[in-house]
């Protein structure tokens, strides 16, 4: 697998079209998912998806496999490109701010049993988070990425990501209290 990825990277560095097709088919769905978490408009997401691969192929010479896997590296580009796209547009959606939700000393229920009502409320609460927080939560809970990988993608450090996750989780439970 590692050898196959190394061959793919080498071929991409030599700008081989077949390698690019393989990159798109193997990593495209994950990249598109990352973009869609942040950009909900389909046309915009497609545009950013395209930009991600243009940037990736232009920057493949500087990619260091020792720092992160190819998938994580692509996710980093997708995350940054998507947020840059949102910043370039005039924001028309207001997300839930921490300050509106009261004190940070809110206790989150630990090891609570699965509860359909709570799940439904959390689903609603997730849509009220800012896009970058939604992406972090999805990477941790859905893709089960490590804190190191999330830190690489978001340009942070693992301990900061841990604190962010804890804070976002508390925020979600505070939001569902208001729903």
């Amino acid at each position: 697998m590692e050898k196959e990825t190394n061959t793919l990277i080498q071929d991409l560095r030599h700008q081989k079209p077949a390698a690019c097709q393989k990159l798109l088919s193997d990593y495209g769905p994950a990249v598109f998912r990352m973009v869609q978490r942040i950009i909900t408009q389909r046309e915009d997401a497609e545009e950013v998806y395209q930009d991600v691969f243009v940037k990736a192929l232009r920057g493949i010479q500087n990619y260091n496999p020792k720092q992160a896997s190819l998938g994580t590296w692509l996710s980093r580009i997708a995350y940054n490109e998507s947020l840059n796209f949102l910043r370039s547009r005039k924001p028309n959606i207001i997300y839930m701010d921490d300050r509106e939700l009261g004190s940070d000393s809110f206790e989150v229920p630990d090891d609570a049993p699965q509860d359909e009502h709570t799940i439904a409320l959390l689903e609603q609460a997730l849509s009220l988070l800012p896009p970058h927080e939604q992406a972090i939560i999805s990477m941790f809970y859905y893709e089960e990425k490590s804190l190191a990988d999330i830190a690489y993608i978001t340009g942070s450090i693992p301990s900061t990501v841990g604190s962010q996750l804890s804070r976002i989780r508390k925020k979600l439970y505070r939001i569902i209290k208001t729903l």
Partner: peptide, 12 residues
Amino acid sequence: DINLKEAVSRRE
């Protein structure tokens, strides 16, 4: 947090 995990999964 199985509830949050499930909520994220459904959303995805």
